[in-house]
Computed example of a mutant assay.
Amino acid sequence: MNYYQLKRDIVDYAHSIGIDDIGFTSAEPFEELRPKLEEYYAKGYDSGFEVGTIDERINPKLSLPSAQSIIAIAVGYPNKLKDAPRSTKNERRGIFARASWGQDYHTLLNDRLNKLEAYIKHRVPEVECMNMVDTGVLSDRAVAERAGLGFTGRNGFVINPKLGTWTYLGEMLINLPFPSDNPIIDSCGDCTICVDRCPTGALLGEGGLNSKKCISFQTQLKGMMDVHYRKKIGNRLYGCDTCQQVCPLNKGINTTHEDIEVEPDVVKPLLIPLLRMSNREFKETYGHLAGAWRGKKPIQRNAMIALANFKDDSAIPELKKVISEDVRPMIVATAYWAIAEIEGISSIEFIERALQKETEQIVLDELNDILNTLRREQYAD
């Protein structure tokens, strides 16, 4: 079989189904990743969302024993919001990260990979392959880099010459010996703007990341958010784009696709209506977004934090309704904190009364912390 010709045909077909870039590499182990992953886990930089052992993450053949090659794909996504609704006083809005705009990218990429697989099986019926998108054990970024789709920048993202960092990545393990593409030899040079502008200092300088410090990770946690990070998330409901927004190599890039339909009022929603949204309403409105995968509770918590960061006093009545009607201790505790942030020392009496009636320990702990903070501020005045 002429694998060079088959490769060219696959590339042409890939472009016809909405794959913006495609590269090929061998299925040999990514041994250069081993020391990086060992350090990553040893220092506690992992998010807990990663899957697979280190051996599984670096050795493709532990996923598909017959694998000889890996086909890496990149699909660009939009980062500009046309006709974006404005966040105004008494009508404050939150924001979902750009990777969560439109249809869930897992669905979008799997659809393209399934079509690519069907095409290859039509050409080579006996072929064996396995598709991975984000939740697979392999490092999408390591595969993409070795397959020539870009180089890893200081922000940890693969920087593609045409798509920048605004890309969804996926791969297909396959038992065909395709000729490999060459990696792109490039770097960020002396530029450190992403590291300098990271709100929490999560970026480590050479593409590494302390995931637990990353705002994207913090917005996805299900429990109480540490006060330090509450002050940092601004109005973010899910994810963080700062290190991509400031990257000079992303300037002028905005890739669009017909099946990535961006809904401005959904990805930049009003905050107050989120506070008491039912499960059904949440699923109907946000269920198709990748940012909904953790459910509504983290989004509602982040919405209250955003209202607090805006100092939006119009939210006080709704926050008090949350306290009186919601049965989830984490949500109630966050609502108390938001009220105290908005009203300052004038909320001391309200917090003191709450301490007399609340019974959940997570709420009591938060109330005590709030009261101590408010009293310090009161005495400082």
Rank of each mutant, 00 (worst) to 15 (best):
S66E: 11
D46P: 03
T53A: 11
S100T: 15
Y45I: 03
P85D: 05
K61H: 07
A84W: 11
S47F: 14
T88Q: 10
I70T: 02
G44K: 15
E91D: 13
D46S: 15
R57W: 06
S69C: 14
G94P: 00
D46A: 12
R86Y: 11
A84M: 09
P85E: 12
F96P: 00
Y77V: 05
L62K: 07
G76W: 00
I73E: 00
A84Y: 13
I58F: 11
E50W: 04
P78N: 07
E56W: 03
E50M: 07
D55K: 03
G94M: 05
A72C: 10
R93M: 13
I70F: 02
P60S: 06
L64H: 13
R98N: 15
G48A: 04
S47C: 07
A67R: 02
G44H: 01
K80P: 14
I71F: 03
D46M: 15
Y45H: 06
P65V: 07
R57G: 02
G52R: 06
A97E: 02
S69W: 07
E50R: 03
T53S: 14
N90A: 06
I70N: 03
V75Q: 00
T88E: 12
P60F: 04
E56L: 05
A97S: 07
R86L: 15
A84N: 11
Q68D: 01
I54E: 01
Y77D: 06
S87H: 01
G44E: 06
R57C: 06
D55H: 01
R92M: 04
Y77T: 03
R86D: 15
I71G: 00
E50L: 04
L64N: 08
A67I: 08
S69N: 02
N90H: 05
K82H: 15
A84E: 08
P65G: 11
K80M: 14
F49W: 11
K61G: 10
I71N: 01
R57S: 05
L81I: 14
Y45T: 07
D83F: 08
N59R: 05
D83T: 10
I71P: 00
V75G: 03
P85V: 06
P78R: 05
I73P: 02
N79Y: 05
R86I: 15
P65I: 13
R57K: 14
N59P: 06
S66A: 11
F49R: 08
A97G: 14
A99I: 08
A99H: 03
G48W: 10
G52Y: 00
I58R: 02
F96M: 12
R57M: 07
G48V: 09
T88V: 07
I70P: 00
P85Q: 10
K61M: 15
E50A: 10
S69D: 08
I54R: 01
I73G: 00
L64Y: 04
E91F: 01
F49S: 02
D55I: 04
G94S: 00
R98V: 14
V51Q: 13
Q68E: 05
G52F: 01
A74Q: 02
S63W: 06
Y77E: 03
